[in-house]
């Protein structure tokens, strides 16, 4: 399973970078969304993928019998998803308001603060 996931993560990273390099701010945000998903999948894969081994300890035991899935990466991903949800919601509001103010979707035309 891991090699497949590695390829998927790689494709997601590539796609997100391609999107972020476009000029449109909408595509920029789509790229960021893809990127955060790619990062989450990466953590998920790194944590080790096992099937059907919940990290539950039977009563009286000190360790779960027969190995277990590491719950921590999932907790990390959950936190990261919550955070990226908030941040990306903000980014969507931002591009919406930026579009209203600037009347332009093209990053090349948003250069008045560059030097």
């Amino acid at each position: 399973m891991e090699p497949v996931m590695a390829v998927v993560v790689g494709i997601l990273f590539a796609a997100s970078i391609y999107m972020m390099l476009r000029r449109s701010i909408v595509k920029l945000v789509i790229g960021l969304i893809l990127l955060s998903n790619a990062a989450n999948l990466l953590i998920f894969t790194i944590g080790g993928m096992v099937r059907g081994l919940p990290p539950l300890i039977a009563e009286g035991d000190k360790l779960p019998a027969g190995g277990w899935a590491d719950p921590l990466p999932q907790a990390l991903i959950l936190t990261a998803i919550v955070i990226s949800f908030g941040v990306l919601a903000f980014a969507v509001v931002l591009i919406h308001r930026a579009y209203e103010v600037v009347q332009e979707d093209d990053l090349n035309k948003m250069r008045s603060t560059d030097t």
């Binding site: 919601a89 903000f90 509001v93 919406h96």
Partner: peptide, 17 residues
């Protein structure tokens, strides 16, 4: 609160537009 703040802000801006 935060989801509704964001959604209402977006919808409010839309309606104003």
């Amino acid at each position: 609160g935060s989801v509704m703040t964001i959604v209402l802000a977006l919808a409010g801006a839309e309606e104003k537009a």
